[in-house]
Design a protein around this nucleic acid. Structure first.
Length: 401
DNA sequence: GCGGATCAC
DNA sequence: TATGGTGATCCGC
């Protein structure tokens, strides 16, 4: 329905208004263009199917079958075998089972993922001490400063495994980089599966360019965790994030710090690939005839039909391939602006059940609040109906209290 | 300031 | 059988 409203505005636009917006957007683009920076080396690191990969590493039986991490109500991640059946993150588990009846659903082991995430951030902080973790499995790094001091190639030991035992990763043959020196082999019996494991050790070298350094980072992550990740390299974080998705899994993609290359890349990029453009914004853009980011610029005069002033500006930035190269929000406790707790349960109108549920949530929240926040001025209540519609009501403490 | 929406992960 | 939980931001009114 919103889409029809947008189309109506679009078709109702007079020639004069069109000219006006064309001028306005062109000016805005020129202004935004002055903010472009092409002198930073921004990197986005994204672990491949993170939760699923951890479970597969620790249980070889899961490596070759479709599996997902989560529960019957929701799947957090699926492995690539499961994705072939259409099983995706965010999907209810029972739908996943409908798509793939032999799907193996493994419960989440958050403690494990948190500890792997620490290993990850610890390695990454060697390259950018002020990195930003986007979540447990992704990170934003600015390699510019590190690259200044990177004047020599760097060598690392490499350990890989083969034999009947497959308990340890990475296996031989999964990293084909040529070693710089001799290789050694030795055998041992795996205490876990009692089969023979052959340990291959050698040395590999990484050069001084940013793409080499990112290869080194991914290598170190795999050596330390047995997990692979993908990376995107670009002049800003918005583009780096898109790039990390290009050669997933276990790959990297570099977008050169060159205006022409950036424009070329952005022109063909589907709008939905951009962080911040979700299902709704994608539909709005599509109603305007914009499906690739390049369309946002060529049809820019239409943007006001669907977006506010701020929205228009943010879309133009996407179309121009502009983004931030600063480490944005620190997601620490200190900057937290709200805490919340919510629970879904089977539909009921039994007021006793509902009141009890609410009381439990209040108690739990109150406990968290006592340790996590010092003060607050507002409280909001959210209700989800069986229709999945959501209502919220909030109240503020009157000024002076 | 409030209620609704959107978005990421 | 069965569709998440947490936090942030923006919009229109």
């Amino acid at each position: 329905k919103q889409q029809n409203e947008i189309r109506a505005k679009m078709y109702g636009m007079s020639e004069a208004t069109k000219k006006y917006h064309q001028r306005e957007m062109a000016e805005l683009c020129l202004l935004l263009e002055t903010q472009r920076s092409l002198d930073r080396d921004c990197v986005h690191i994204d672990m491949d199917a993170f939760y699923a990969a951890v479970e597969m590493r620790d249980d070889p039986r899961l490596r070759d079958i479709p599996m997902a991490v989560g529960g019957s109500s929701m799947l957090s991640t699926s492995n690539y075998a499961a994705r072939q059946f259409g099983v995706r993150a965010g999907m209810p588990g029972f739908i996943g089972l409908r798509l793939c009846s032999h799907l193996e659903i493994v419960p989440t082991n958050f403690d494990k993922y948190i500890s792997e995430s620490r290993v990850l951030s610890s390695i990454l902080s060697d390259y950018d001490p002020s990195l930003t973790m986007g979540s447990l499995d992704e990170a934003y790094l600015d390699l510019t400063d590190y690259l200044m001091g990177r004047v020599h190639p760097v060598r690392h030991n490499r350990v890989r495994y083969s034999g009947d035992c497959v308990c340890r990763l990475p296996l031989l043959g999964t990293n084909d980089q040529l070693p710089v020196g001799p290789s050694t082999q030795r055998e041992e019996t795996c205490p876990k599966c009692t089969k023979i494991r052959i340990i291959h050790e050698d040395e590999v070298e990484f050069g001084v360019g940013r793409s080499e350094v990112v290869k080194e980072i991914r290598f170190r992550v795999e050596q330390a965790t047995g997990l692979t990740c993908s990376a995107g390299i670009a002049p800003n974080f918005m583009l780096a994030k898109v790039c990390s998705d290009q050669n997933k899994p276990n790959g990297q993609f570099e977008l050169e710090n060159d205006l022409h290359k950036v424009n070329e890349f952005v022109r063909e990029l589907p709008t939905r690939k951009v962080a911040g453009i979700g299902r709704v914004s994608e539909a709005h853009l599509s109603a305007l005839g914009m499906n690739k980011c390049g369309d946002i610029i060529s049809l820019a005069y239409l943007l006001p039909c669907a977006f506010s002033t701020l929205g228009v500006e943010s879309m133009l930035r996407v179309g121009l391939g502009l983004g931030s190269n600063m480490h944005s929000r620190d997601s620490s406790e200190s900057s937290r602006k709200s805490i919340s707790i919510e629970r879904s349960f089977s539909p009921t109108s039994d007021s006793k059940v509902l009141t009890e549920m609410l009381q439990d949530l209040c108690n739990a929240l109150s406990e968290q609040a006592s340790t996590k926040i010092r003060s607050a001025s507002g409280l909001s209540l959210k209700v989800k109906l069986s229709s999945f519609d959501v209502l919220t009501r909030c109240a503020s403490v009157p000024i002076g209290c």
